[in-house]
Simulated scan of single mutants.
Amino acid sequence: APSPLGQDGLAARPPRGRQHCRISDQETDGKTSAASSNDFSDPIYKEIAITNGYINRMTREELRSKLAEFKLETRGVKDVLKKRLKNYYKKQKLMQKEYINGDSCYDYICVVDFEATCEEGNPPEFVHEIIEFPVVLVNTRTLEIEDTFQQYVKPEINPKLSDFCISLTGITQDIVDKADIFPQVLQNVIDWMRQRELGTKYSYSMLTDGSWDMSKFLNIQCRISRIKYPSFAKKWINIRKSYGNFYKVPRNQTKLTIMLENLGMNYDGRPHSGLDDSKNIARIAIRMLQDGCDLRVNERIHGGQLMTVSSSVPLEGAPAPQMPRYRN
């Protein structure tokens, strides 16, 4: 059968940034959830399903060749390449039909990956305190890292770092001794975010690699520092969940180094540097956006408990950051 990939004006042309965002992460096999108001009996969905079947039968080299023809990224394992090509074709088709709403993703994503005090073997009674607070600002329109923030934090309960912690993170005793305590660093983060008009002029969401940065480290730190949990960090995108759902891979395939490897990328920088980890997580987020993933909030904290956010919940950005009140 002739390839359907060159039909209907889908000739090779480079995609400009991120054209439209609202595409479901569900596979289209005769059914889809791109927008609940669509009439799924439209022949376009049959065309997409037929094309998906065709893509499923392609070899890795055929996939890379077709992606190159469309000026798309050709690195990654075979399943990643299939997903990339399917989403590109689906997006083009739905845009022709004007089925995609172009303004339903966040303007910015703030990637955070804390480093915290630790001891070898992680004894259960050990209290982790944040010692590095990085933020990497990703512009979802230009698909670039636009800015970064990084400050170290002075721990109060265990002010002396273990040798294990120093060798793991590269953060020295001298660095934390000279740093501000957590409430001051949080205030600096909030000032930095407000200067960039996040939550006022621009919509944004927090993004982490796993759920523990917010549900564990930030939650514990706010209790130690006797401040309430900040409202802007109550919901976030757990990129491990997003990656697993989008590329259809098991949970053990969603570690940072494995996600990079499967996307054809190497880790850039020093592992367990909070800022370098955040930059690499941002690179994964950017590649997922390029591949057509609809990155959106999927976790939240409520009453100190970690909870899942359904993908059917209307997209809503985080509030403008404000310094939380001190606990009584």
Rank of each mutant, 00 (worst) to 15 (best):
L72D: 02
K91W: 01
N87L: 08
K78D: 03
K93Y: 00
G102Y: 01
K97H: 10
V80W: 01
E69T: 06
R84K: 06
C105G: 15
K66E: 01
Y99V: 00
K91H: 04
R64W: 01
Q92R: 15
D79V: 00
I100T: 08
V80D: 03
T74D: 08
S65K: 13
L67H: 11
M95W: 00
I100N: 10
N87A: 07
L67R: 14
K82Q: 05
Q92W: 07
D103V: 13
K83M: 13
S65V: 15
F70S: 07
M95Q: 08
A68E: 07
Y106H: 03
D107S: 14
K90A: 09
S65R: 15
Y99Q: 01
Q92K: 15
K71S: 07
F70M: 11
T74N: 12
T74G: 10
C105L: 10
T74A: 11
Y106D: 00
E73P: 14
Y108H: 06
K86E: 07
L81M: 10
D107W: 06
G102H: 00
D107E: 11
T74W: 06
A68D: 09
G102R: 04
Y106I: 04
K66W: 04
K86Q: 10
S104I: 09
K93M: 13
G102T: 05
K83S: 12
Q92P: 10
Y108R: 04
G102K: 08
Y108Q: 01
Y108L: 07
E73W: 02
G76C: 11
R84Y: 03
G76R: 02
L94K: 11
K78H: 00
D103M: 14
